[in-house]
Design a protein around this nucleic acid. Structure first.
Lengths: 195, 195
DNA sequence: GTCTATATTACGATAGAC
DNA sequence: GTCTATCGTAATATAGAC
């Protein structure tokens, strides 16, 4: 510690993203200054521009990376099975994956309006992509008569909204464990879509 | 029009709140300047301080008023009945009331982190108050064996999260009417809690 | 009650030394 | 790659004229 000058490209880059993720999640993109981020990283504000062209790119990078990783993780996690099994996998994956990275999740849906139009369109496309994967499960369940869902699009959005709710209040060490919360939600989801 | 000076206390006050509500909802509290609000109202920025002590008070006033009115409207809307009927009333009330004032709703849950600590505590108390009313319905239903809900607190939060989801995508004139959306959600809620 | 003008502070971003 | 210093702009809020 205590070195105030010198080259640190391999650590400053990641630290910059971590600091921005933490601060944006807590105070919001518009309320956080480049100077605050720099202080958290341990450099002066000007030094940040060796890593990013501007503040907007930093926000976009965080959101794009989060969505890309979400889709990759989802595809790696899912196994074949009946619609009811796939739905259970989705619920478990969604709750746990999001609970493990609350900051990125929070930013991804609170800061959409602070994205430039072109950036917004890209993130929106990824979000719809994820939503569509749940809808496909619901559609398959309706076709096999396992589910009774009058409108799979609405149901997919409603279920994701419900599952996202966990992220607004869950804290490690609270009254319920993550596993219990998962069970309780799966119970409601299952009953809600079953024929 | 075209009068650029003079007294307008009876219209400027409400116009100020309307402008702030609209701009905060669209761009976020931190991203909106007093000058922007003043331009929307049709006065200079300094004139706004005849109506509010500072920007923070303006945000708090919008959120406090919204929550107060929500609770009053809820109490005026609810009628006695079996838990299942009360739950249906809650779902209908919540979806419609929130759909009618999307800006205030959006602000009420996106701008919580921009409230000063004392203001935050007040709004949080009102929000928990509203949530508790749904939980009471669920508890009554469990006691009468009409509902099977293992954890009424979690279920209340999950259901409200699901219903709030409507506000993030509903637009008048879309594929589905408000009544259809209400029916679809009631269908899921009902099945999700029934014994 | 609103205006113009301004005090004070902070912002994002850049330039040039090391 | 990071520093110090700074450019140009804009923020909240206030003062005093009308």
């Amino acid at each position: 510690m205590a070195r105030t000058q010198g080259s640190h490209s391999e650590i400053t880059g990641p630290k910059l993203r971590e600091a921005a993720r933490s601060l944006f999640a807590r105070y919001g993109y518009a309320a956080v200054s480049m100077r605050q981020i720099a202080a958290e990283v341990g450099v002066q504000a000007g030094a940040l521009y060796n890593y990013i062209p501007d503040k907007q790119s930093l926000l976009f990078d965080l959101m794009k990376t989060h969505m890309d990783e979400l889709l990759i993780a989802y595809d790696g996690h899912m196994r074949d099975g009946a619609p009811i099994d796939q739905l259970k996998q989705f619920v478990g994956f969604h709750i746990r994956y999001h609970a493990e990275r609350p900051e990125a999740v929070f930013i991804a849906y609170m800061e959409l309006r602070n994205l430039d139009p072109g950036n917004f369109a890209q993130i929106e496309a990824l979000r719809r992509n994820y939503e569509a994967r749940l809808e496909e499960i619901l559609k398959a369940g309706v076709e096999s008569s396992a589910f009774q869902v009058p409108d799979t699009r609405i149901a997919a959005m409603a279920l994701i909204a419900m599952l996202n709710g966990v992220n607004t209040w869950f804290r490690e060490g609270g009254r319920l464990s993550m596993a219990e919360i998962e069970t309780l939600h799966w119970d409601m989801v299952r009953k809600g879509v079953l024929a």
